[in-house]
Design a protein around this nucleic acid. Structure first.
Length: 257
DNA sequence: ATGCCGTGGAAACCACGA
C-alpha cells in the first residue's frame, strides 16, 4: 500500500500537475495540503476522473486539506484539530482507510518570528501533540503526515546558519517536533535514510531547485504498529522540476498490506 | 539577508507562503 503527501499550493492552479502526478505515481492514498479553494471549488470531477475518491476540508484563498483514495473505502473521522474552537483554519482532516488512521495536516508556517503567527504555530503544535498522544494511546495503526513546516535537524536545511530565526527552524519549533517524536512516532524518511540530504521543498526563486537549495518539511510519522510494516519511502523529486509545479515535492511511503 | 516567484481574490494592489 502506497501512501503519499503533497502540498499542492493551489489545487486548481496546479490541477494538471496533480493529475499527472497521480497518474504516474499511483498512490493508493494521497494527502493534499494548501488546496487554496473553498469546499465548493474542490475539483471533484477531475479527481474522480483520475480514479480517486476524496474527502476534503477547504477554505477560501488559504489552507485546505484533502485525503484521496484509489480503490479503497475512506471514512472521515474528523476535520478539525481538537483544542481550540476559535481556530477556523482548514489545516487538518482525518480518516480511516484499510484499518489505518490517517491524519493529514498543514501546520502553520509561523513567520515572522517573533509575533502572533509564531505563537499560533506553537499553540497548533501543542494541540497536535495532545491529539497525537491520544491517537497513540488508542493503539490503532496511525499515520500523521503532511506539511509540518519544520526542519527537524540541520541536515534538513540547505544553509542551516541562515535559518536560525526563521519560524521553521526556531528551537521552539524543532523542540515541539522532537517532543512529538518522543511519544514513539517514527520519521519514516529519516529511519530509512539516516544520513542522506533529502529535501521536499525548494523555493520558487533564485533557481533554488536547480541549485538544490531545499528544505525537508513534509514528513511521515508512523505509530509503531505501522512502522514495523514500513517497506520503502521516498520523495518524487522530479515532480518539483515540472513546469509550473508546486514549490513542494510529493513524499511517499510503502507499507506491507 | 532578502518573498527576487507564485496563487488567490479583490481591485488594478494586497495577503500569504517558507
Amino acid at each position: 500500500m502506497k501512501i503519499a503527501t503533497y502540498n499542492v499550493n493551489g489545487i486548481n492552479g496546479h490541477l494538471s500537475i496533480v493529475l499527472r502526478w497521480l497518474e504516474e505515481s499511483k498512490p493508493d492514498v494521497a494527502c493534499l495540503q494548501e488546496l487554496k479553494a473553498p469546499n465548493e471549488k474542490f475539483p471533484l470531477e477531475a479527481i474522480e476522473g483520475a480514479g480517486y475518491k476524496a474527502i476534503w476540508h477547504g477554505q477560501k484563498s488559504w489552507n485546505g486539506v484533502a485525503i484521496l483514495t484509489r480503490g479503497l473505502d475512506i471514512q472521515e473521522v474528523g476535520r478539525v484539530l481538537p483544542g481550540d474552537p476559535e481556530d477556523l483554519h482548514s489545516r487538518y482532516i482525518e480518516a480511516l482507510v484499510n484499518g489505518i488512521h490517517i491524519g493529514c495536516l498543514y501546520l502553520p508556517n509561523g513567520n515572522p518570528y517573533p509575533g502572533p503567527k509564531f505563537d499560533y504555530k506553537l499553540q497548533w503544535f501543542e494541540r497536535l501533540n495532545l491529539h497525537a498522544e491520544a491517537l497513540m494511546k488508542a493503539g490503532t495503526p496511525t499515520i500523521l503526515t503532511g506539511d509540518y513546516n519544520v526542519m527537524p535537524q540541520e541536515i534538513d536545511v540547505y544553509k542551516p546558519e541562515r535559518w536560525g530565526n526563521d519560524a521553521l527552524f526556531r528551537p521552539e519549533s524543532r523542540e515541539a517536533f522532537h517532543k512529538l517524536i518522543g511519544q514513539g512516532w517514527t520519521d519514516a524518511i529519516r529511519k530509512l535514510y539516516p544520513d542522506e540530504v533529502i529535501y521536499t521543498f525548494w523555493d520558487y526563486f533564485r533557481n533554488a531547485y536547480e541549485r538544490n537549495a531545499g528544505l525537508r518539511i513534509d514528513h511521515f510519522l508512523l505509530s509503531p504498529n505501522v512502522d514495523k510494516r514500513l517497506k520503502a519511502a521516498g520523495v518524487d523529486r522530479n515532480v518539483r522540476g515540472w513546469e509550473k509545479s508546486s514549490d513542494h515535492a510529493p513524499v511517499w511511503i510503502e507499507i506491507a498490506d
